[in-house]
Structures are given as structure tokens and as C-alpha cells.
């Protein structure tokens, strides 16, 4: 991997280094092959969720979410005064996502790509309709997410949204409902919920749906890949159903922490 600039603010390694290449003769065993049923889970099953609100002492609200290999920590700071002097009638919701360098298969050198930015936008879009920003003039709510380990970018968006919404509730910020999120991928003709990285790679198309199960409203849909309209609607229905299950998990976790 070519290093474009020498960063004086960090300890630097050699100018060029590349991840290890493995011999072809010993392939990883047990890889999914086209035509086989889904491994490890049923198509409509999601990974078990572990959710812990309030682990960061100095944050106004925080949450840690773990779904098997996906691990995300989230902190909410605010509402606090906006730095700029211009008057804003509505509060500003600021979402920042950071990948740890060891979170993916390939090392993520700091500040090399824009994937964290696109993730932040997706989570911001999902949360904004729920947060009552009109009650917080001149203020900013900062949501910081650190991805400790990632297993599929769609699952990261979904888990990140759930973590952020839990942290907002933990911070006592007024929302009209808790935002839940679920991902789906279409592999061959089948819909698989909560795809892992490997599953997403073999998928034809994928979708992330964020909604407020308490109100029955959808806040954001992010679809990519080649899917027929009826497949998209099928995925959305499946995701929405699963979101109400996740909602009860989050509500339970928040009650236990209160």
C-alpha cells in the first residue's frame, strides 16, 4: 500500500507494506458455494445482539453494541453550544464515524478513504427524523462512533444506528421514537437478513432499513445493487418486522440501565 504523505503526528512504519499473501493450495475450508442454503443461520434470522448503555463515564450518553463479530462503541456529547456564532433555530446533529485500524481484514491506515464519512451520512439520515432538533436552538449534539470490529458494511450501518439511538436515549435527548435498523441482502433468489461481510460480497443487492417501530414509520432506506421492486418491498417488510424485535431488546437494555 503506497503511503502518500509522511505524517509527523504519528509513529510511522516503512514507506510501503502490504498484507500477507497466502498460498493457493490451502484455501479456507467451509466457504459458502452458490446454490447451497445459508450457513450458520436461517435466512430470516439476525445475529444475537448484546447492548450495553452507559459505558463511557464522561459522555452524556453512550452505548456499546456487539452482534457476533461486529463491535461498535458510541458516545453522545450534548446538547452543547454550537461553536459558530451564527444563530441556528434548530439544533445540529453531528455524526462522526471512526474505524479502528484493526477493524477490517485489511489494515485501515488513518485518513485514507471516505467510507467512514459515507457511514456517518447514512446514520445521520436514519436518526434525524426522530430527534427533536427544533427544541434545541443554538445547540449541537455530537454523536461519535468507533468501529472496533466490522463484519459487513450494511451490518455496521444498522448496528451503528441502533447504538446511536440507544446512546441518545441514554443521554436523555428528546426523540419522538427510538430508531431501529436492520440490513438485508438478496443472494440468488433468497432474502437473507443481517448479512455478514462474506454474505454481502456474494449478494446481488442489499438494503438497510431504519424505522421507528413504536410509530410504524420509516426514517431511511438505503438500497444498492440490482433488485426488482417487489424484492425491495419484500426486504423492507422483513426488515421492518425484525426492527420491532430489536426495539424490544433496546427498550429492555435501557430499562435495566435506568
Amino acid at each position: 500500500m503506497a503511503q502518500t504523505g509522511f505524517d509527523r503526528r504519528r509513529i510511522n512504519g516503512p514507506e510501503q507494506s502490504h498484507p500477507p499473501t497466502f498460498g493457493t493450495q490451502d484455501e479456507v475450508e467451509g466457504r459458502w458455494i452458490v446454490g447451497q442454503p445459508r450457513k450458520a443461520r436461517k435466512p430470516m434470522d439476525i445475529r444475537p445482539i448484546f447492548l450495553q448503555p452507559g459505558l463511557i463515564d464522561q459522555a452524556n450518553g453512550s452505548a456499546y453494541v456487539e452482534t457476533e463479530r461486529t463491535k461498535i462503541a458510541c458516545a453522545v456529547y450534548g446538547p452543547r453550544q454550537t461553536k459558530s456564532t451564527a444563530y441556528h433555530e434548530k439544533g445540529k446533529l453531528n455524526v462522526e464515524v471512526k474505524f479502528t485500524p484493526f477493524s477490517c481484514e485489511r489494515r485501515r491506515a488513518p485518513m485514507r478513504d471516505a467510507e467512514d464519512r459515507s457511514l456517518a451520512v447514512a446514520i445521520h439520515q436514519a436518526l434525524l427524523p426522530a430527534v427533536q432538533v427544533e427544541l434545541l436552538p443554538k445547540s449541537t449534539i455530537d454523536i461519535f462512533l468507533t468501529i472496533i470490529e466490522a463484519d459487513g458494511i450494511e451490518a455496521c450501518v444498522a448496528a451503528g444506528t441502533v447504538a446511536a439511538s440507544t446512546a441518545l436515549a441514554d443521554a436523555g435527548i428528546e426523540m419522538i421514537g427510538l430508531v431501529m435498523s436492520c440490513a438485508a441482502a438478496v443472494v440468488e433468489q433468497e432474502t437473507w437478513l443481517d448479512p455478514t461481510e462474506e454474505e454481502a460480497r456474494s449478494a446481488r443487492g442489499s438494503l438497510v432499513l431504519s424505522c421507528m417501530p413504536a410509530l410504524g414509520t420509516v426514517t431511511s432506506v438505503w438500497q444498492s445493487g440490482k433488485l426488482r421492486p417487489e424484492e425491495v418491498l419484500g426486504c423492507m417488510d422483513a426488515c421492518q418486522e425484525r426492527c420491532s424485535d430489536i426495539h424490544s431488546v433496546v427498550a429492555q437494555a435501557l430499562l435495566e440501565n435506568a
Binding site: Q16, S17, H18, P19, P20, T100, P101, F102
Partner: peptide
């Protein structure tokens, strides 16, 4: 976390 890579 430790990530190992190969370099000259």
C-alpha cells in the same frame, strides 16, 4: 489490535 504486514 496488532495487524501484521510485510515490507522490505
Amino acid at each position: 489490535g496488532v495487524k501484521a504486514e510485510i515490507a522490505e
